[in-house]
């Protein structure tokens, strides 16, 4: 797989570290309750198809990226800097 880093361009995924579904950016409020926190920490949609994930470009620019990807075909649709996704 190759990921399109917004800063470094197209790079082999060996330069990146996968973190998990991008829902991790939507951290619940501290008092959101056990269900919300269970969902945030443990439960996953785990789609067979299009998904959005966090990847870290550790052997490149060091940016966290939100990558849009298909888990069945491995097609990569795009990547943006996570800090821009989180405003």
């Amino acid at each position: 797989m190759r990921l399109p880093c917004p800063l470094c361009g197209s790079r082999d995924h060996r330069e990146f570290t996968y973190q998990g579904a991008a829902v991790m950016l939507d951290r619940p409020a501290p008092d959101a309750g056990a269900e919300a926190w269970d969902s945030y920490v443990h439960l996953r949609d785990n789609p067979a198809g299009a998904t959005r994930e966090l990847w870290y470009h550790g052997a490149g620019c060091g940016a966290w990226l939100v990558v849009a990807r298909d888990t069945v075909t491995h097609a990569v649709f795009g990547a943006e800097l996570a800090r821009q996704v989180r405003r």
Binding site: C8, R11, R14, E15, G58, A59, G60, C61, G62
Partner: peptide, 10 residues
Amino acid sequence: SIRSELGHMM
């Protein structure tokens, strides 16, 4: 000027 790995080194 780019950043990458050389072998296993940054």
